[in-house]
Each structure stands twice: as C-alpha cells, then as structure tokens.
Amino acid sequence: MRNLLNITDLSTGEIDELIALAEDIIAHPETYQDVCRRKKLATLFFEPSTRTRLSFEAAMLDLGGSVLGFSEAQSSSAAKGETVGDTVRVVCGYADIIAMRHPKEGAPFAAVQVASKPVINAGDGGHNHPTQTLTDLLTIHRERGAFRDFTIGFCGDLKFGRTVHSLVSALARYTGIRFVFISPEELRLPRYIVDNTLKRNNLPYIETTSLESAIPDLDVLYMTRVQRERFFNEADYIRLKDTYILDCDKLERAKPDLCILHPLPRVNEIAVEVDEDPRAKYFEQAANGKFIRMALIMKLLELSV
C-alpha cells in the first residue's frame, strides 16, 4: 500500500506518469468519470483550507466516487482530545483513501503508522505539501513542456513556505534548472534544504533580498504569501508581510514568456492588476490541482481505465 507524505516518496518516473495521466484526464474527462465508483475519499482537515480540500473533493466526485470528512478540527473528535492516530484508525473503517491536513508537522507520518488505507498528506504545518507540488509541477510542465533549462525564482516566505520546500525538493532531481531565492533575511530557505538538497546535488542557486534585481532572469516566478498562522509573534508578521508586492511596474523588466505561479490564497503580494497579464498562471494552476489529484487518487487506489 502506498502513501504520499513527501513529494520525494514519488520517483521522477512516477511523477512523469502522474502528469501524463493528468494530461489525459484533462483531454478526455468522460473516460474517467466512473473509475472510482463505490470508492470513498475521507478528507480529514484539522486546519482550514479552500483549494486543497475542494480540489480533492472535486477530484473524487469527477472520478465517480464519494466524499466524507470534516473541514476543521473543532468539528472532529480532535476537539475532545482524540489523537491523530485514533482518528485515522477509525476513519480507515469508513473510507478507501484519506487526504489529511494538520497544523502539526509530521502528523501524516503519525497517521500512516496505524492506517490500513492509503494516506495523502494534504499539508502538515510548515513542513510538506506534496499535492500542491504535483499541481505546481503539472502547471510548469504544461507551460514549459519539460523540467529542464529554466530559471525559477521563489519569492516571499521561504522559511515556513511548505509549498516552496516541496517544490525545491522535487525540481532538485532534474538537471538544468537554476534556482533564485528571494526573501527577507528572517524568512530565508531553511539551511537543511540548502545543505541537503542544493549543495549536496551541486545545484546552481543564489539567494537575494531584491525581487527587482532578480526578475529579469526568471522563466518561472513562484510567489508566496507571508503566512500569519506560522508566526508565534504578531509583530514579526506585521513587519514582514508587505516586503514583496508583484505589480505591473516590476513585470516590465520580466521576460515576455515568464510564468507567474502562486499556491493561493494571495493577500496582497500579487497586485490584482497582474491578473490580466497573460503571464499570470496562478488560476490555471489552481484548476490543474483537481486533475493531478484525480491522477494521484487513481494511482494510490491502483485503478485504471
């Protein structure tokens, strides 16, 4: 039985297969509409989410399956003090596959120790968010055609931004990709990712605090939100939240085929005026999330058409 806790649980070959399957689902959705008939997905969301939860639910419904679950810890037995392990063990009696989001890092690892059904990590605190990464990879693949020969910039909260951590780990396994990390000093990429992923693989990367100076070289720009919920200290959040705002002025210096991504939700780090720019791909990215999750559910349930 397979789980997905971290994007590196999947080989690059498996990621290629998932992307190919998602592309086929996009092209021929009717072929897949009954693949998961009589199967149930449990969405255990101990932390609020819009896109991830709804895209998982839409994915299962479009595969002909059913969905059950909860969307916040307060409406589950976690509010009564139940452990993650006990909740998951119980839910395994009701569902065929579990998508789980939890504010604590490593909660999905605790879940798979006792789960008898596949578990998908739908985000665990500031740690990992592999299905967002699959969504990002599908979008980059659709825009660039392949995972090689481009420069990708990550901008904003690179310290707590789990989407950034997972995407860097995934792209580090391909060759010919250059990395630019744009963040305030306090929100730099964690050193363990720099040491274990970038330096160990001799990947070309630079770290900077200036979006303006970095933007002309980028082929992909991955913007992130500074997340209030990751700070213990509100004053630090207020001080750092408006460090980077992407607007049309800054984009004048960017390449004409730049691909702008954002895991959403955005607050103000991308000005609304940018939405009309053809280089803005973040809403397509959100839509792609449903298709790659359809592919993932099929893979983990070992189903095919």
Binding site: T83, G85, P103, F109, G126
Partner: peptide, 18 residues
Amino acid sequence: RCITSSEPHLRSMFVLTD
C-alpha cells in the same frame, strides 16, 4: 510544531541523514 510535541505518547524516531 512537531506532532510529537503535542502527542507525547508517539514513539520518537530519528533517522541518520548525514
């Protein structure tokens, strides 16, 4: 922020990474 800090009954587990 680790789940083992809020659920101390969990077995602690560390793996050699370097």
